[in-house]
């Protein structure tokens, strides 16, 4: 750490890959679109507020416009009536984009195996991180978020 600081101070340089730098920058500036539909929204609120403070991970700014966001949080049950809306929102987001399935209903449909519910949003969109739980605890959400950050860091970055 000391060495690195010295080099910066003395106008030196540090080598890295562009991918790693971009990944590092992207993973700490997650602009999320919370697509909140159901119960999980309550835990989403708790995660975002003071007790758990998702801002510590650079994901504190929810954008309610798909065009301004990088990560789509699908929070809560998706019914067949709502599925086209979700798909449209996903299509409106600009690349690069990631999708987080928040809660078991979005992962598999959960215990709503019936005529109204989509059996997992991965039948509609590509999903990057699954956060199971009905609803997941805030700690669980933060764990999922860190997994997403790792994924963003290590992937091939499109510029």
């Amino acid at each position: 750490m000391e060495v690195m600081d010295d080099r910066f101070v003395s106008g030196g340089f540090q080598t890295s890959k562009l991918d790693a730098v971009l990944g590092w920058a992207r993973k700490f500036s997650i602009f999320q679109y919370p697509f909140v539909t159901a119960c999980c929204g309550m835990e989403y609120m708790s995660t975002a507020c003071s007790h758990y403070d998702v801002d510590r991970f650079g994901a504190g700014l929810p954008r309610f416009s798909p065009r301004q966001s990088d990560v789509l949080f699908v929070v809560g049950t998706i019914s067949h009536k709502l599925a086209p809306v979700l798909k449209q929102i996903y299509d409106q987001m600009a690349d690069p984009k990631w999708v987080v399935a928040f809660g078991v209903c979005t992962c598999t449909g959960g215990f709503y195996d019936n005529y109204a519910t989509v059996q997992g949003i991965d039948t509609l969109l590509p999903v990057d991180v699954y956060i199971p739980g009905c609803p997941p605890r805030p700690e669980n959400v933060i764990d999922g978020l860190i997994k997403l950050q790792e994924k963003i860091q290590n992937q091939k970055q499109e510029v």
Partner: peptide, 9 residues
């Protein structure tokens, strides 16, 4: 939009 078939289930 959040019809989850409570009554049927």
């Amino acid at each position: 939009y959040l019809h989850r078939a409570f009554e049927k289930s």
